[in-house]
């Protein structure tokens, strides 16, 4: 029960996220089915691929996934993996997991898309105290983003950090045992690794 599962949508490279956790000495395993989700301590939804194909691969396990979340299993969605937590996305036609209320919309046309590169986090003083992922991360810290869509949660309280790129959007989401980042912590240098460490410390407890 000490292993972390990384769900593979079968559509992209999940090597980077896997080795990032391995660098932190976490025991990770890539899974393609969620039939045995109870064998794992936490679940990572990685950030590669497109919305519909990824949803298609996860849909058969939706009930199983919701059960695990209800039972308190910590889950971290990265980029697309976070977008899938919402009800729908402009990137696809299939419904999302609807674990969080809200939708995913395209970045404004006024900016270069995808938003690719290093951008700053904006962290409110209030959320920096209560946040699990942001423990020890300062306002203005740079993270590496690669995305064309962003979440628009119905409940703003799930947002613990934002970034700005043509529009202000949620960069870090936390709601109970559900965590999400729009950027790629596994590609964000030592600050990104620090956030993954925060996640690992959280699930150890």
């Amino acid at each position: 029960m000490s292993k972390i599962a990384i769900f593979d949508y079968g559509a992209g490279n999940i090597f980077s996220i896997k080795v990032a956790f391995e660098r932190l000495c976490a025991d990770v395993e890539v899974i393609r089915s969620m039939d045995n989700l109870d064998l794992y301590k936490a679940l990572i939804l990685p950030g590669v691929g497109n919305f519909d194909p990824a949803m298609k691969s996860i849909m058969p396990y939706k009930d199983r996934l919701l059960e695990a979340i209800d039972s308190g299993m910590p889950m971290l969605g990265i980029c697309l993996g976070m977008e899938m937590l919402f009800e729908r996305s402009e990137e696809g036609t299939l419904p999302g997991l609807s674990i969080l209320a809200g939708e995913v919309v395209m970045l404004p046309r006024s900016v270069k898309i995808p938003h690719m590169g290093w951008n700053r986090l904006r962290i409110d003083a209030s959320s920096s105290n209560s946040s699990v992922l942001l423990n020890g991360i300062e306002d203005g810290t740079w993270m590496y983003f690669v995305h064309s869509y962003h979440a628009r949660p119905r409940d703003g309280r799930v947002v613990s950090a934002r970034s700005e790129y043509g529009v202000e959007f949620p960069a870090v989401i936390e709601h109970g045992n559900i965590f999400g980042t729009q950027f790629h912590p596994e590609k964000s240098g030592s600050d990104g690794m620090h956030m993954l460490t925060n996640f690992l410390n959280h699930i150890k407890r």
């Binding site: 980077s16 080795v19 660098r23 590496y144 596994e186 590609k187 964000s188 240098g189 690794m193």
Partner: peptide, 11 residues
């Protein structure tokens, strides 16, 4: 590439 990807955390 594999060895580099294992070692670094930037793109």
């Amino acid at each position: 590439v594999k060895s580099v990807a294992r070692a670094i955390d930037i793109p």
